[in-house]
Design a binder for these strands. Structure first.
Lengths: 163, 163
DNA sequence: AGATCTCGTTGTATTATACAACTCTGACTG
DNA sequence: CAGTCAGAGTTGTATAATACAACGAGATCT
């Protein structure tokens, strides 16, 4: 263990910045559901994220979704079932492993996702219209880096130590 | 109406960046609940945001919370009732307007919030340990600016025009 | 073959949320 | 002052998202 260092003005400024990041991210997270509902009422945030993920990944397993979004597999199973029932996705059993279903966008899913993306892009375009390209790029990089860091640091032990 | 401009490589690069921002923000939002549950199991994301808001604002009304987090007043009412029942907050009727209750942290609320913040700070400290101060500052600024922009551009009309 | 692991489903309970109807209280108007 | 209207909060009701536990079917490894 290294020697404890006395707090300096630099470390407390850092703390203040971290607090600020937390606060803004949290506020954003809490608003996200409602925001999505207003941008595209026909597709909830939950459905949107799944369809969007499938588009980007060109198909994936339910387990992958659960891992990526930190959800229980039962939750994903039901959401996938609902999207399947609506005809938005298809489940193709993997021939090399009969347990796994590879999820793909179905034609109707492609359509509704595209429609939602139109609204979503319009909203982002308008909101971020005043941002310069350099700031946008940096913001995107920071977010990506943040999410990667969060994923790679599952949890600092906060409680009894179990994970 | 201004003349439509042909898409240039600059505009499509911008679009790609906007997509990236959307994607990362959405993934973050979707993970936030579970993340909070792991960081501080004793205080849900929802409770945390309310207590935290009260701490920062030194008290506010239920209506303010609803507006800030884009929630229905009934939702906030129940959450506030739950926090009150747990002894985390106090409701003080505003003497100048008997309709309004000003919400404040109660001693127990201060305690649990502080405990959660310890976990939270530890998590953020670890996650963002590799970030330099300049990047952190900029990230914080961008998030703040993003949230402000989102708040000031309620919605570009996406549907039939109603809000 | 048997133990064990993984993927997915289903049963059950809880929590967050919205919408609508309602009660108070305050403000404005004739 | 009476009547109306607007704002704050509560409650009834319904739905959606979620977790945990138990389970079934298929794969894997002795």
């Amino acid at each position: 263990m290294s020697a404890p260092e006395a707090p300096t003005s630099a470390t407390s400024a850092r703390q203040a910045t971290l607090e600020s990041i937390q606060r803004e991210l949290t506020a954003f997270a809490r608003r996200a559901r409602a925001t999505a509902a207003r941008m595209h009422p026909e597709l909830s945030l939950v459905s949107y994220t799944i369809l969007s993920h499938l588009e980007e990944q060109q198909g994936c397993r339910a387990t992958d979704l659960a891992a990526y979004y930190l959800l229980d597999k039962s939750t994903v199973s039901r959401q996938v079932a609902a999207l399947d029932k609506l005809g938005f996705i298809e489940r193709r059993t993997d021939p090399s492993d009969q347990r796994v279903q590879v999820l793909h966008l179905a034609p109707r899913g492609i359509d509704v996702l595209a429609a939602a993306q139109v609204s979503r892009r319009a909203a982002f375009d308008e909101r971020l219209a005043a941002w310069g390209p350099a700031d946008l790029e940096r913001f995107a990089e920071y977010l990506k880096r943040y999410n990667e860091d969060a994923a790679s640091h599952p949890w600092p032990q906060t409680g009894t130590g179990g994970r």
